[in-house]
Design a protein around this nucleic acid. Structure first.
Lengths: 107, 107
DNA sequence: TATATTTGCAACCGATTAGTTTCATATAAA
DNA sequence: TTTATATGAAACTAATCGGTTGCAAATATA
């Protein structure tokens, strides 16, 4: 079962979990309280997130604190980069057109 | 069947299609030639991409040219923004630490 | 007009998914 | 030690997914 970041963020609950623990580490129980599912379902999501290294654990007694592996999120950013170049170019082209129109109005 | 961008990019073939048509519009047949699947499978992917408005069509006779709706890709960028703030802060904090270490070494 | 090409859709199939219930293990508290 | 709490794993289920085959519609070409 090969996991990747793209598949991991496809599920809305997992995206919510990611956002939830982005700023503060949380235990599975606390995370589950924020959702309308069982603790076990959240546990499964956390396993998937751990498998693709989007999340790291830190044991503290019988509690396990989960927190976001922010570096892994950059992978998405990296993939988006190829398109960012395109939309910036498009914007520049639009900008050029607008400038031309402006100049024409002045004359 | 609610489609969203996150679910759309979860599939590797769809990601490849997106990259393929990002710079140049293509027909389903031409797109399918680039993959190891049937034309119908590609057609299904294109339907999903169309449903979540990641792709737009332009009919030309009996051919249909598909191209990327680059604006929609910004939605992903927008979602990533919340984490970008975090990783930039982390970087700045690291930078601060490094600067402090440097200063300490000087003294 | 008859034939070929381009495409989308429906029906089906095996695999995967997200969820539940049940159970086992480990740690903390009484 | 006994009981309560926190957690993960296994087994099961309904729904969805990605793929295939077969077919119909529309357009181009002979």
């Amino acid at each position: 079962m090969r996991r990747d970041v793209f598949q991991a963020i496809a599920d809305p609950t997992r995206r919510a979990i990611i956002t939830l623990i982005a700023l503060q580490a949380m235990t599975p129980n606390t995370i589950a309280e924020n959702f309308n599912t069982t603790r076990q379902a959240v546990s499964k999501h956390l396993r998937i997130l751990t498998e693709c290294e989007l999340v790291k654990q830190e044991q503290e007694g019988r509690e396990i604190y989960y927190s976001l592996e922010i570096e892994k999120m950059k992978e998405l950013d990296k993939w988006l980069n190829q398109f960012r170049k395109i939309w910036e170019t498009r914007f520049n082209q639009l900008d050029k057109v607008l400038t031309t129109i402006k100049k024409q109005k002045k004359c």
